[in-house]
Amino acid sequence: MKLIGSILVVVATTLIGEYYANGYKMRIKYLMEMHRLLQMLYSEVEFSRGVLEEALLQMERGVGNGYKQFLRELSKGLSVGNGKSLEEHWKEAVYEYLHIPYLEKEDYEFFLSIGEALGYLDYEMERRTIAMYIERLQKKIDMLEKEVSNKCKLYHTLGVTIGCMVVLVLI
């Protein structure tokens, strides 16, 4: 009985470690998705020069599920045009429609800051601003990717180690 219990504890903590490791990888995945979204926005501004409301709908088709609803609802909000600034529309759409559990508070803050910077800039400024955000995000992703194997190892090891320690304490 003790043996079965111990195995269960170790398996559970190992799975928790795996969960955190997976969460780390998923965070990178969704940040890469955000990166893709920004690149699409850049292309829309650079080449099609369509209005933001239209561009967001175009982008919706090309991004993963996590950001789809955000883009759709933001576009809808802008088309209604109830006298709010882009920053306000963006903030509302993020709070209501962007729920990606793997992203951290700092990722959300970064994403919110994009909405603050757009909407009133001329072509050159808008393009450069988006490019700057893409670059910042790329750096962040690179940093996280560099640490991915170490972090995953750490989470796995911690999972097993904590499980063993708990077993030792309990026994």
Binding site: R49, G50, E53, L78, G83, Y120, L121, R127
Partner: peptide
């Protein structure tokens, strides 16, 4: 005036250069 410009350009001043 700034807000009006934002609304006139549908939040996309870049598109109307």
């Amino acid at each position: 005036m700034k807000e009006t410009m934002e609304f006139v350009s549908s939040y996309s001043l870049y598109a109307y250069e």
